[in-house]
Nucleic acid binder design. Sequence first.
DNA 1: CAGAAATGAATGAACGTTCATTCATATCGG
DNA 2: CCGATATGAATGAACGTTCATTCATTTCTG
Lengths: 197, 197
Amino acid sequence: MQTEKAKTKPADDKREKLLEAALGLFETRGYDGVAVPEIAAKAGVAVGTVYRYFETKDALVNALYRSLKQSYNTAVLAPIEPGLPTREIFSLYWQRMTLFARENPRAIRFMDLHHHGAYLDDESRALSKTYAKAAESFVRDGRRRGDIRDLDPVMVVALMWGAAAGLTKFSASGSLKFDAHASDAMEDALWRAIAND
Amino acid sequence: MQTEKAKTKPADDKREKLLEAALGLFETRGYDGVAVPEIAAKAGVAVGTVYRYFETKDALVNALYRSLKQSYNTAVLAPIEPGLPTREIFSLYWQRMTLFARENPRAIRFMDLHHHGAYLDDESRALSKTYAKAAESFVRDGRRRGDIRDLDPVMVVALMWGAAAGLTKFSASGSLKFDAHASDAMEDALWRAIAND
DNA sequence: CAGAAATGAATGAACGTTCATTCATATCGG
DNA sequence: CCGATATGAATGAACGTTCATTCATTTCTG
């Protein structure tokens, strides 16, 4: 039904334009700080059109959250060649995280700001669980092999997400350049933080 | 005029009750997610009373932000005995941060959520600057002495605040116990992340 | 020209803010 | 001491505005 052919099918895809506009607004001001008519204006459509594509404002944020979290999960949790050493698996995960963060800083800020919103539905929340589970199993495996120190997996997730989100936010405020070099320097620091020896 | 004698002077200090109620509400739902009448209700006063103590809703958040950030700065940036080795200065700062975070988790979440709010005035923002300056000078000194690796001070701040805020948030969601042991484990990890050798 | 898509004025609920009114307490005159 | 008077903290109904949402109408499209 959706995205069947690429031939100017849905005119100019207002749904996509609405999600894009919503991201640009929600990312800095949050769900309650943005009015629906403003989203419509930024997307270049009338207010009523918003409700042709989304049942409610809640449905719109959830669709946006799901879309971004889905992309993020797909990018970061892509299959990893079996048998790789822990250090290289770590590097791969971190590279994927920061590549995504540098290409989609607004997505990172939006997710960081809305992770705990009461308007998120069960399906949106489920995507966060998927990510947490994957992260925890990486830490558990690394510990089993003796490569990672005796740390609570949740602490490692807190450290890594905090670092990536922090770099993204400080980069947005201009006090830091979040380039490949910064990413590598942080990878080095983070690995020292969690590695044995 | 205020706090002259301890004799039931300001009745039950409604200003304090309003700030306390506002913290409990803003901390999870953010500035735009909370209505003034709701704050009044939680504080046990009438709506109009809010405006006897604060000119606007904006003034209320700013007063709250200033009060919390002030407490935080005072606790963390207290004078440090001169001549202490970098490792011990680091430990002291981290201990102060996590002690404050564990005693005032709502303050941490509130600050983390409102740091970049457009409603914050210059005086509120100035308090963030004070903190950033202190953190940067610690990193610079440590680097000069050769104890800290060649890292952007902003990256160290991102790492440390991210870790403390992350622990606070995951602790609130029940997936982690933010006790003295967790704090010590994280201190160890963070020091490995930034230390030379 | 028929059906789908898009529009934006209209709607009622909820928002931040105001202010006429109340009333417990303080001050005073005798 | 006591009744009269003055005070200002506290109240909550009411105000204008803005919000999310609806829907009668117009504009596209095949």
